[in-house]
Design a protein around this nucleic acid. Structure first.
Lengths: 192, 192
DNA sequence: GTCTATACCTGGATAGAC
DNA sequence: GTCTATCCAGGTATAGAC
């Protein structure tokens, strides 16, 4: 949740609730009734703001894109290591809430959602991948990161690690989440 | 699909179809009607074999566990490198079919499924993790693999890479799948 | 073991009053 | 902008004939 509830418009509250539900239960398992129950508004009113479930899905992804852009701007002058740690800490919060990330949640439902959602999600995933790639490149150039492969490949390795460990650690062991986070950081340290 | 259709019982055909649908559409998005349409049997008949959807889900995971045990036995006398490559090739097949793996599919739906499914999935995930860990340990002892961290941690890193890249590469670029596979192998190679 | 028929529920979506 | 009322499609599940 990005703002205090009393500062949010109904539209924003709906999106925020949809986000929680999508990442907790999946896109196909959440319903307008769930939102209705959570925020005390009738499903018909939700349809006023978002005519279809697809519209709500797209809006939720767009919200994530906007947040990520703010996030990027806030961290712009920080070190590559701090940027990466902050990125990983987003997932620590997700883990704490026993949810998964938006990309991970929607990616497994991809064959069942409207192309509008699929395309918006592509935009978001590419945005994140590009940013992590840049952070890794900067870190390598500054000598604070050391890794084989291209920055893009390493970014894919790190993103897949973190995206999947929030899912997998619910099945293996909750502590595996921290273990993987630490391994990601450790593996980037220069061996000198 | 493990056998020819004409050698399978109705029960096995149902499980196999459920498996395809779960990994293609997700547990909550597939229906008994989907199976009915695919294999030409009425939904009521499916209920004869599996009283509830949960029963079918559990049976599908149990089938995966059995297959994995056979798989382990078949590869028992093979080299660690071959074992790992064969493991990764399971995902190449999944990628080819534009699906995701069972663990990845059900993990994002975990908060919405019956505990019976959750517990069976835990058993499966632990089984796989244990096996990959052993393969890595053997490879390290034989000097064919080199890596930091414990074998279990490295197994988590590899499994999360492969589990998530089948999902993520649908959004970023299909070729990212092969790139990650190759990076996994390359990163394990001894440096001198 | 498979069928028809049906019960029951939930979901997305819309019309129209306020 | 939110409500009540309603429609219709689809889902899981069961009863009972064959």
């Amino acid at each position: 949740m990005q703002k205090d509830l009393y500062l949010m418009t109904t539209r924003e509250i709906i999106i925020d609730t949809a986000d929680q539900l999508i990442r907790s239960n999946g896109f196909n398992a959440f319903s307008f009734k769930d939102i209705s129950n959570k925020i005390g508004i009738k499903t018909a009113s939700i349809h006023y703001h978002f005519p279809t479930k697809t519209d709500l899905g797209v809006a939720t992804i767009k919200e994530h894109i906007e947040r990520f852009e703010h996030y990027k701007a806030e961290l712009a002058d920080k070190s590559p290591l701090l940027k990466l740690k902050r990125f990983l800490s987003i997932y620590s919060q997700i883990k704490l809430e026993n949810k998964v990330c938006l990309v991970g949640s929607l990616a497994t439902d991809l064959n069942t959602v409207d192309d509008k959602i699929k395309n918006e999600l592509k935009t978001f995933a590419e945005l994140v991948l590009l940013w992590v790639t840049e952070v890794l490149t900067d870190g390598k150039n500054q000598g604070v990161f050391e890794f084989q492969n291209t920055s893009r490949t390493k970014a894919l390795m790190i993103i897949t690690n973190i995206l999947a460990i929030v899912q997998l650690s619910r099945l293996t062991n909750d502590e595996d989440f921290e273990i993987v986070i630490e391994a990601i950081i450790r593996d980037l340290e220069p061996h000198n």
